[in-house]
């Protein structure tokens, strides 16, 4: 219990952002504790399991939050906002990769060494195949899929991040899942 100061752990994300606008370091630390792991894993999955690139992206994301915290509207939900910012960063990243080379060249070669646990060969193979299949969809569809099944977000939150109606999110997921479950049926 904090007698002489704020208990940052009890504050909401939005309250922490208000304090960060006032340059309170502890507010930043608390937000980092809450979101660094999930954002790193989001980048990691979206960037074909390229750990180093995902770490760079995580650093850049939090640097944006340090430098421009006022861009966040404290009346809105922080979790949605941070994924929107991350999504925009990924779009730029994909655009650069498209300009400078294909995804496989940029990230694919490192994929094999990413998952270290040898006992999880099936999962490793499944993920490699899932990524190849997800590559057949555009990055927005992939984003929706990752947000739903890896980041466990609600349909409403995904709709806000992807900036489309909830019905569209559901129909896209339903369509993708049906296709993916058929193409990855060998992993049954």
């Amino acid at each position: 219990m904090a007698f002489f100061g704020k208990n940052y752990k009890k504050l909401s994300d939005e309250e922490l952002m208000s304090l960060l606008i006032e340059r309170e370091k502890q507010a930043f630390d608390e937000l980092y504790i809450r979101y660094s792991k999930q954002m790193l894993n989001y980048f990691y999955r979206m960037l074909y399991f390229d750990k180093e690139r995902a770490e760079d992206m995580l650093h850049d994301l939090f640097l944006k939050i340090i430098e421009k915290p006022y861009l966040f509207n404290t009346e809105k939900k922080f979790s949605t906002w941070i994924y929107t910012v991350a999504g925009n960063m990924l779009k730029n990243e994909f655009r650069d990769v498209q300009i400078h080379g294909n995804h496989e060249k940029a990230y694919g070669n490192e994929q094999e060494t990413r998952i270290e646990n040898e006992q999880k060969v099936d999962s490793k193979l499944f993920l490699a195949s899932l990524n190849k299949e997800l590559d057949k969809f555009d990055s927005e569809l992939k984003q929706i899929f990752v947000l739903r099944y890896f980041d466990e977000m609600s349909i409403k939150e995904i709709a806000e991040i992807a900036n489309c109606p909830e019905g569209t999110v559901k129909s896209r997921l339903f369509y993708m899942n049906k296709k993916l479950s058929v193409s990855l049926a060998a992993f049954r």
Binding site: N41, Y44, R45, K51, E55, I115, S123, F126, Y149
Partner: peptide, 10 residues
């Protein structure tokens, strides 16, 4: 299953 095995720490 895959989600569990692909989680990394910053």
């Amino acid at each position: 299953q895959a989600k569990t095995y692909t989680s990394i720490e910053p």
